[in-house]
Amino acid sequence: MRQKLARVIGGVAMLALVAGGTACSSGSDDTASGGDACGNKIAFFGALTGPSAALGINENNGVKLAVDKYNKENADCKVELVALDSQGSPDQAPGLAQKAIDDAKILGIVGPAYSGESEAAGPLFNEAGLVTITPSATNPTLAKQGWKTFFRAVGNDLSQGPGAGNYIKNVLKADKVYVIDDQSAYGAGLADEVKKLLGPAVVGSDKVQGDGKQTEFSAVVTKVKAANVNAIFYGGYYQEAGLIRKQLTAAGITAPMIAGDGVNDAAYITSAGAAAAEGTILTCPCQPAAEARGTFKEEFKALNGSEPGTYSDTAYDAANILLAGIKAGKTTREGLLEFVKGYSGEGVAATYKFVEGGELDPAQVKVWAFKVKDGKVVPDQEIPKS
């Protein structure tokens, strides 16, 4: 569990840096209304519509809260939030990245939210010197591209994959596991890490199509049933995961499904149906939203009309890091990039310090398991690192 005193003291320091005084921007639908004395902007980059929108909306709402609070405290010099809706598609990412790059007032990006779109947009952001802090893209290779502008506010799949594998091995004590992935940079990478840890316990694996391209999974269901497994791992996103779980259950397969953070959303339960989803284990290199310090949960609900979801708090923290830099007078892309590179401080979700490749300091990474219980995703336990 997080040390409460350190979180409160450090969190107050971080929020104090963002509060009061002069910073910058104009009002928009995503910010408090007001003048444009400074005109600076930050953007959220992720899916706000389409089959992967639920996680992106969680994150965008966290960013909205950070900007809303900042603008109330800096009414003479607001920051505008620009929403860049990728629909989670790597194909759309380069065009959206260029749109952000061409707007000279955009100083930093919260996102991209997903690994595939990060792969596609990262080279453009790097060339333009536009800093990005992803709250959720977890493929380890993203930090190995030599991009100077890439930073990650969560652990990567080298922490989450083994975490999921350890849960399957030590908590579920499953010795016959079937692994499925959606062939995305994120899903396949996560599945590979699980397979590495479980070794011979993986008795079969298969691939499906993601991005809403496949809705019928009878072939893989037949293979899983024939393998007679006692656990199923899925690497991918919630829409396909829900349909697979629904079809597995309909075929009489009761082995629990374990999946990563791309499935860790209430939309998975909607896709699968509450009865089929019951008992599913969902991992995340993040803490439960209920663990967020201070009044984040209450403020989030007051602004957005809903409880914070997966990565709402890390997106909020990522936005606050950018806003802290603007507050400190780093109102060029070069200046804000240098600020983020040297940043160290507490947020509502974690302590932030970036190491080589823009990774979050591994000492700050925590992996949690969540469980679907009575139709809701609830915290289960923090997974030990080894």
Rank of each mutant, 00 (worst) to 15 (best):
R2E: 13
Q3E: 12
L17W: 09
V18E: 11
V18G: 01
C24Y: 11
S25A: 14
S26Q: 13
D29M: 06
D29V: 14
D30Q: 15
S33I: 08
G34T: 10
A37L: 15
A37S: 15
G39H: 11
N40P: 06
I42S: 02
A43E: 06
F44E: 06
A53P: 03
N58W: 08
N58S: 14
G62Q: 03
V67L: 09
K69V: 05
A75F: 00
A75N: 01
D76K: 13
D76M: 11
E80Q: 15
L84G: 01
S86A: 03
A97K: 10
Q98D: 03
A104G: 05
I106M: 10
G108I: 12
I109N: 05
G111C: 06
A113S: 12
A113V: 14
E117T: 14
E117Y: 09
S118I: 07
A120G: 11
F125R: 03
G129M: 10
G129L: 10
L130V: 08
T134K: 01
P135M: 06
P135R: 08
T138A: 15
N139I: 11
N139F: 08
P140W: 10
K144G: 04
W147M: 01
W147S: 01
T149C: 04
R152V: 02
A153F: 00
G155M: 01
G155I: 00
G161N: 13
G163L: 05
D175S: 11
V177A: 00
I180K: 03
L190D: 06
G204N: 06
G204W: 12
V221A: 05
K223P: 03
Y234K: 09
L243N: 04
A259R: 07
D261S: 05
N264G: 09
D265K: 10
Y268Q: 03
A274S: 15
A276C: 04
A289Y: 12
G294L: 10
G294Y: 02
K297A: 09
K301A: 13
G305V: 05
S306G: 06
P308M: 02
A315M: 00
A319Q: 02
N320I: 03
L323N: 01
K330R: 14
T332M: 04
R333Q: 12
R333Y: 10
G342I: 11
Y343F: 15
Y343Q: 07
G345H: 10
E346D: 10
G347R: 00
A349Y: 05
A350D: 13
T351C: 01
Y352F: 15
F354R: 07
V355E: 13
K366A: 14
W368V: 08
A369F: 07
K371T: 11
V372L: 15
K373N: 07
V377S: 07
V377N: 05
V378P: 14
D380F: 15
Q381S: 15
E382Y: 06
S386I: 14
